[in-house]
C-alpha cells in the first residue's frame, strides 16, 4: 500500500478515507485533508477509515460535513507545506479570499460549522469561525449581541445584572 506519509508532489494515488455523517452519507476524501482534524488524525494514522468501514461522525450532518470538507480540501496543501515557506503571496491571498467567502453564510450554518470545527478540532476552521463571530459582535452593545446571537430576552434579573455591569464599566459603553 501507499507509504503512510506520501509527502508533497506525489503522483501515485493519495490515500483516501471515508467519513460517514450522522445521516449516513459517505464522504471519501484524501487522508491529508481529513487529517486537518485533530480528532480524525489519530484514527487515520492508526490506519482507520480506509476501505469499506469508514469513520462514523455521529455529531456532524452531511450538509455541515460537506462544508467542512470543502475547507479541509482547500487548506490541505498549505497545511502539508507547513504553511509558509513554499506558499506564494498569491496562494495566501487566494486562501484568504476563500476563507472570507467561506464564512459568508447563514447563521444557522455558521453555528453547525462552529460545533463541527469544535468536535473535529480543526484548528484553522475554529479560528476562522471564531473570527467571524467576533466580527458579528464587535462594536455592539450587550443587548445587540444578545439579539444578534439569538439569546432569549433577558429575565428581569438578568437585565438588572446587565445594567449593574454596564454601570460599573461605563467607559466601555461610551
Amino acid at each position: 500500500m501507499a507509504a503512510p506519509e506520501s509527502g508533497d508532489g506525489n503522483n501515485g494515488a493519495a490515500r483516501m478515507v471515508t467519513l460517514i455523517s450522522s445521516d449516513n452519507t459517505r464522504f471519501e476524501v484524501e487522508a491529508a485533508a481529513a487529517s486537518l482534524s485533530q480528532t480524525l488524525q489519530l484514527t487515520i494514522l492508526d490506519g482507520g477509515g480506509g476501505g469499506g468501514d469508514g469513520i462514523p461522525l455521529p455529531n456532524v450532518d452531511s450538509a455541515t460535513l460537506s462544508k467542512v470538507l470543502e475547507y479541509c480540501i482547500k487548506h490541505a496543501p498549505a497545511a502539508a507545506n507547513g504553511g509558509a515557506p513554499n506558499a506564494t503571496a498569491v496562494d495566501r491571498a487566494e486562501l484568504e479570499r476563500f476563507d472570507n467567502e467561506f464564512v459568508n453564510i447563514d447563521q444557522s450554518v455558521l453555528y453547525s460549522l462552529i460545533m463541527a470545527a469544535h468536535n473535529l478540532e480543526i484548528e484553522g476552521l475554529q479560528s476562522l469561525v471564531a473570527k467571524k463571530v467576533a466580527d458579528m459582535i464587535k462594536g455592539k452593545s450587550p443587548m445587540e449581541i444578545r439579539r444578534t446571537l439569538g439569546f432569549p430576552d433577558p429575565t428581569p434579573e438578568e437585565q438588572a445584572e446587565m445594567n449593574a455591569h454596564m454601570l460599573e464599566y461605563g467607559w466601555a459603553y461610551e
Binding site: 447563514d106 447563521q107 460545533m115 469544535h118 475554529q126 479560528s127 467576533a134 439569538g150 439569546f151
Partner: peptide
C-alpha cells in the same frame, strides 16, 4: 435574521471568539 441559539456554544469556542 435567523438566530439560532448561540448560548450553547462550547466554552472554548466562546473564548476563541
Amino acid at each position: 435574521d435567523k438566530a439560532p441559539p448561540a448560548p450553547t456554544l462550547p466554552d472554548d469556542m466562546l473564548l476563541e471568539v
